[in-house]
Design a protein around this nucleic acid. Sequence first.
DNA 1: TCTCAGATGTAGCGGTTGCTACATCCACTA
DNA 2: TAGTGGATGTAGCAACCGCTACATCTGAGA
Lengths: 187, 187
Amino acid sequence: MTRREELAEGATDYALEHGLVGLSLRPLAESLGTSDRMLLYHFRDKDDLVTTILRTSNARSMRDIRALPPSTDVRTAVLDLWRTVSRGDQQRCQRLYVEAAALGLFGREPYATEVREANTSWMAALADHLVGAGMARRDSRRAANLLDATFVGLQMDFPLESPARQRRTVEDLADAVAARWGQPGSP
Amino acid sequence: MTRREELAEGATDYALEHGLVGLSLRPLAESLGTSDRMLLYHFRDKDDLVTTILRTSNARSMRDIRALPPSTDVRTAVLDLWRTVSRGDQQRCQRLYVEAAALGLFGREPYATEVREANTSWMAALADHLVGAGMARRDSRRAANLLDATFVGLQMDFPLESPARQRRTVEDLADAVAARWGQPGSP
DNA sequence: TCTCAGATGTAGCGGTTGCTACATCCACTA
DNA sequence: TAGTGGATGTAGCAACCGCTACATCTGAGA
């Protein structure tokens, strides 16, 4: 592993821990046992570093979701997906995503296309898991969109709300999705 | 209207336009025809100003959602709510909310309680509208939670995606909600 | 008309930011 | 052994940040 890759991994850990908004080169470098000078030696500029962090974090996230074993039915699949997505690591990755959006990065290159691709493969992973649980292929795309949106919203809204309400909302979502797309061939 | 209130309104406009993340006193003051010196005269410090901006923006948002005329049925209610929520003003207000979350404000006072209260009354407004469209009171709370989460997620995810996919997702949500909680007394 | 408190302008402080110029060190090759 | 190119340390620049000390102005009440 090259020095640049080492630094990228460490910087990603740091960003997942401390967030992306106030990210500053000097404290980050110190935590990595190097200097801001060296960060800007291995990465063209801060933008290059942040892009790399986002890419690294997203790669980890995809690995996690793909590692999820198949679910027995659609309702269970939704609950399993949520359990995976709301785990600590994934949650922090999601937070990075939100912060990047808040920073307005997604409107500018090279973030825009990067994120678009990441989102596409993420949606495909969700859809694949639903198909593995018995959902029709053609339904799984739409269901994945709904699931993803709701998951994102849940993680935004409820960090300080009651976990019980959060759980109930997820169950309602699972029921609704299962009712609508549970058996292949349903309307 | 006191000078402080005038500045609060102007600052809220500015924040809705330019975002909250890079918000800096000097450019803001210049845009308002005053100086950073005066902003910090009328507001204790930047935190005080940002809190006021958030409160002002939220008040406007509540006014809009409460002004929505009743919908004929639950499915239509979801679509109507989405149309309101995804309008430009509301969308910008939502963006402020996201940025505040990304800045980590919601974990600290006085933002935390402020936001909790805002969220409660927001959820009540959504639920009231659903009840007005024929949903049972006891269902409306849960439905409002699901709706709110999905709306938030949709606005996060799809600013750069195809509007068609966004519309389809909202319709799927409306169908699912109507199927599950459409008629009073359903399971 | 004098006074005094609130409003405003000027100037700047101490700190942090991303980034860079420059010198140095080290390992390897001719 | 001389040299060469990549890696690293030192120091600092110019810009910006929130915030403040201090002087000034203005307008209402005594």
